[in-house]
């Protein structure tokens, strides 16, 4: 309970308050309406519209004058029976899973490293968090600069390691990993931040008790640290997976819509953009967008179920 006397002091009140005729009900309605209307207009309405468009054959560039032609589920059938659609989702998975796993491991490791007192810790923390606040476009542009054939990365790889240069942006098998590298640079700080929050919340007495029983470092980590931090980490993983799944900017800047050599780095988001705004197949693009939406909802649901199981299991 809060002590009433701690409330900020108010000026001498008037006998008849202004705006007294505004009932709470009225206030609730008028406070909520602008936000709800905006979101209704900018998300629900477009969602319905694109659902309709996904059942039509139409192009915003070629046949603007004509009405969209209803084709039923044709777009979905075409897309789902086309191998190339599946390839795009596989490529997306091949990017998302390694990126999130590396970010998790590296972020957690850095958090363990920083979870102690040393001089300059605060400044260092703030500095390490800068990458995720930067514009993805700027980040990707500069990695592109560094990853060029004769760029600074290759120079040091050759000069210091004596290994032949890596074709970061043009090698078929490397391109997607370059994207992972950029994403890891940008988003490991996010994992670190959340891990650190988890670590600092583990009660000290647990470790003290473990010390009394001379538990090994591995035992302390496995049976105290990890279980205490896991719930937070799962939240972090969900956030990162969702964002990585719809990632567009970095991939676009590094490889363009085509997704690099032989489409090896063309993720689903790039592909939709290409279909909808480069080839201007509006109907097909909408259908693809919906497929992407259904996939993410399904994945998120599975993941949340796992999360709840993990929570109740402990």
């Amino acid at each position: 309970m809060t002590n009433l006397s701690s409330a900020p002091r108010t000026q001498t009140p008037r006998m008849r308050p202004r705006f007294g005729w505004f009932s709470d009900r009225w206030i609730a309605v008028s406070f909520l309406t602008p936000t709800m209307l905006l979101l209704l207009f900018m998300t629900v309405f477009p969602l319905i519209w694109s659902l309709y468009l996904s059942f039509t054959e139409w192009s915003v560039a070629r046949n603007t004058r004509e009405a969209p032609v209803w084709v039923g589920t044709q777009n979905y059938v075409d897309l789902l029976t086309n191998e190339r659609t599946w390839e795009r989702f596989v490529v997306t998975g091949q990017f998302v899973v390694p990126a999130v796993v590396i970010e998790l491991v590296l972020g957690f490791a850095v958090a363990m490293l920083l979870n102690r007192k040393f001089a300059g810790r605060g400044a260092l923390m703030t500095g390490l968090l800068i990458p995720m606040m930067l514009s993805p476009v700027v980040v990707a542009l500069f990695w592109r600069f560094m990853m060029q054939g004769d760029g600074v990365l290759n120079y040091y790889i050759e000069a210091v390691l004596g290994v032949p240069p890596v074709q970061w942006l043009t090698g078929r098998s490397v391109a997607l990993w370059s994207l992972v590298l950029v994403d890891v640079w940008m988003w490991t700080p996010f994992m670190m931040l959340i891990s650190l929050a988890g670590l600092s919340a583990v009660p000290k007495y647990l470790y003290e008790a473990a010390a009394v029983y001379r538990a090994s470092a591995w035992f302390r980590f496995r049976h105290i640290t990890l279980p205490m931090v896991t719930p937070l980490l799962l939240i972090a993983i969900i956030f990162r997976m969702m964002d990585a799944y719809k990632l567009f900017d970095q991939a676009f800047v590094l490889f363009g819509l085509g997704g690099g050599p032989g489409r090896s780095a063309q993720t689903a988001a790039l592909y939709i953009y290409q279909v909808a705004f480069d080839q201007f197949n509006t109907g097909e693009g909408s259908a693809l967008g919906y497929i992407m939406l259904v996939v993410i909802i399904a994945l998120a649901n599975i993941f949340i179920r796992v999360l709840n199981q993990a929570k109740t299991g402990q």
Binding site: T35, M36, L39, M42, T43, F45, P46, L47, W49, S50, L53, V60, M242, Y245, K246, F248, A269, I272, Y273, A276, F277, T282, G285, S286, G289, Y290, M292, L293, I296, A300
Partner: peptide, 23 residues
């Protein structure tokens, strides 16, 4: 309502981009 508000942010922007472009 709160979940609806949150879900709009989780939406891949590409999905609503086409109608917004037209609109």
């Amino acid at each position: 309502l709160l979940f609806f508000i949150l879900s709009t942010r989780m939406l891949p922007p590409v999905v609503v981009l086409i109608p917004i472009f037209l609109f």
